[in-house]
């Protein structure tokens, strides 16, 4: 059972967290024409690195969506970063 630091709450165990996506995915502007490949890349392609990864997670209890930097082999967590400003 791993422990992740919620940028707001602090350390909680992994059962309180939900993996959302790899970081850096930007939704294409769908009001203009985009090709199938561009859309499929956004929807499905994963970097899936073995090693240091940057991911977007949700802390299910306080609903914080944040950036988590961790290692996908050792499971060591290096940092969690809030995505929120002005709060």
């Amino acid at each position: 059972m791993q422990q992740f630091p919620c940028p707001f709450c602090g350390e909680r165990d992994e059962r309180e967290f939900h993996f959302l996506a790899e970081a850096g995915k930007e939704r294409p502007n769908t009001t203009v024409s985009i090709d199938d490949e561009t859309w499929a890349r956004y929807l499905y392609k994963q970097r899936n690195e073995k090693g240091e990864v940057q991911e977007i997670w949700m802390h299910l209890t306080c609903r914080e969506v944040f950036l988590l930097k961790r290692h996908s082999v050792t499971m060591a967590v290096s940092e969690s970063v809030s995505l929120r400003q002005g709060c």
Partner: peptide
Amino acid sequence: EQLLESWRQDGNNPN
């Protein structure tokens, strides 16, 4: 609710 929250904080202004 979870979907709304994740869209709210990702790509929208949560404030």
